[in-house]
């Protein structure tokens, strides 16, 4: 490989990296979510913040913390997750969604929740 080749390769790689970043920011998905405040709105008004999980409490082990901080469950199927109506009412709420089809099965405020992972349980990934 000559120097121009290497530069070209680097440029293409960089371009691709930037491009994929751009795509992440734009709306690849087009489904709609029923905000408990605002009703049915397109997904790009919202911010996704990962599945609802229980934050380790009290005498949690190092392993439990590592699991909580650095691993994501990556479920193929139904999961309850946090969404934030970023572009409108700024409400954080829970969405039950099928990750395979993006079918939104249920949306609710946290205090309407009857799920076992109560109060302290939920956490946001540090993005």
């Amino acid at each position: 490989m000559t120097l121009p080749d290497i530069l070209h390769f680097a440029l293409v790689t960089l371009h691709f990296a930037l491009l994929s970043q751009t795509f992440q920011k734009t709306n690849q998905m087009s489904f709609q979510i029923d905000c408990p405040n605002c009703g049915c709105r397109p997904v790009w008004e919202y911010h996704y913040s990962g599945p609802s999980r229980k934050r380790p409490e009290g005498a949690a082990t190092e392993r439990q913390w590592a699991e909580y901080l650095y691993n994501r469950p990556n479920i193929a199927g139904e999961q309850t997750e946090w969404w934030y109506h970023r572009s409108a009412c700024k409400l954080w709420f829970l969405v039950r969604r099928d990750t395979r089809t993006n079918l939104v099965l249920e949306t609710r405020r946290f205090d309407e929740a009857v799920v076992p992972e109560k109060s302290e349980g939920a956490v946001q990934s540090a993005e």
Binding site: H47, S49, W82, Y84, R86, K90, L91, W92, F93, R109, F110, D111, S119, E120, G121, A122, V123, Q124
Partner: peptide
């Protein structure tokens, strides 16, 4: 500014029993 706003709101969303009224 927006990220911290949402960060606060998120922690508060999981603690509805806390008496904290937040205004951006």
């Amino acid at each position: 500014a927006d990220a911290i706003d949402s960060w606060f709101r998120w922690w508060l969303a999981g603690r509805p029993e806390w008496d904290v009224r937040m205004t951006n």
